[in-house]
């Protein structure tokens, strides 16, 4: 059976080697070149600077913060979809997909208006007496997480919807009949069933957030520096491509380790067994 299917994957395999593996190999090779010759000099320079460490940690932290916020918003939306009728489901799908049809750049610039001093958040807080004067969330980590959460929300909602669509609503009714309350149903019935979808969404959100150069640069400003901005600086401003390659490899490895860990969890027999 394995042998009979192999020829069909050959074109994809060739494309992957030509357009993914080869450029990646070139990138990795480039990262070892420097004025001092071939070696680990670029890695030593990058990892020897405490500032770069902080940037690396901040990038991972941003990804994890976005995962938490998208989960808190995405799970209720997915559950609402699950309990809705045909028309409401179409509306939820439509509203989920609409932001994805708009350019990331446009969505990011819309957030400048929302997070600004004269934006709805600041004005609402002032009107409710929760803030003395208008304030800005631009160039803050909180503002960036809010923007990233909205931008990446479809990435967690869609896998959840795909999982929930296969599960009959009668499962919750059975739990209710057995005497379980709403929280118990959520924790012991729904969340275990949703876990594979959640993990798939977390992987997508983490990968998207940690590489989202435009939003990080525009909303985060120059105070919140993340790894993609460092790579851009090395390529576009300092023209130090070997260093940029080394940083890219470090980003690839650090996010890769986290993604592999999440993927392994999502394939764990006990977790998959629940779904």
């Amino acid at each position: 059976m394995k042998a009979s299917g192999f020829p069909y994957v050959i074109p994809m395999l060739l494309l992957s080697v030509a357009f993914f593996a080869t450029p990646l190999a070139v990138l990795i090779g480039f990262s070892f070149i420097g004025p001092e010759g071939v070696g680990f000099h670029n890695y030593a320079r990058f990892l020897g600077d405490a500032f770069n460490y902080r940037v690396l940690i901040n990038t991972a932290k941003l990804g994890l913060q976005t995962i938490v916020s998208t989960t808190l918003l995405g799970v209720p939306i997915a559950l609402l979809y699950w309990h809705s009728g045909k028309t409401a489901r179409q509306v939820i799908i439509f509203l989920t997909l609409i932001p994805m049809l708009t350019s990331n750049v446009v969505r990011t610039f819309a957030w400048i208006v929302i997070l600004g001093r004269q934006g709805p958040i600041s004005e609402t807080f002032v009107a409710l007496g929760l803030a003395e004067r208008p304030f800005t969330l631009m160039s803050t980590e909180l503002g960036l997480v809010m923007a990233m959460c909205q931008i990446d929300l479809p990435l967690i909602i869609l896998p959840l919807i795909a999982i929930l669509s296969r599960i009959p609503v009668t499962y919750t009714e059975a739990a209710q009949v057995s005497g379980a309350g709403p929280w118990r149903i959520l924790v012991t019935v729904l969340l275990p069933m949703m876990l594979p979808g959640l993990l798939a969404g977390w992987i997508l959100v983490f990968a998207s957030t940690s590489a989202s150069f435009v939003t990080q640069a525009v909303i985060g400003g120059a105070r919140n520096i993340y790894v993609p901005q460092l790579i851009y600086r090395e390529v576009g401003t300092l023209f130090d491509w070997p260093m940029a390659s080394a940083i890219a490899v470090v980003l690839l490895l650090s996010t890769g380790i986290l993604l592999v860990a999440m993927t392994m969890i999502s394939r764990h027999r006990r977790l998959v067994g629940h779904a």
């Binding site: 600004g116 001093r117 525009v218 400003g221 120059a222």
Partner: peptide, 20 residues
């Protein structure tokens, strides 16, 4: 003053338009 540092003049013009 460090809070007002951004990437480019174009970005500054956007913030100026918004009264930031």
């Amino acid at each position: 003053h460090l809070k007002g540092v951004v990437a480019s003049t174009n970005h500054q013009m956007t913030l100026f338009q918004q009264g930031e």
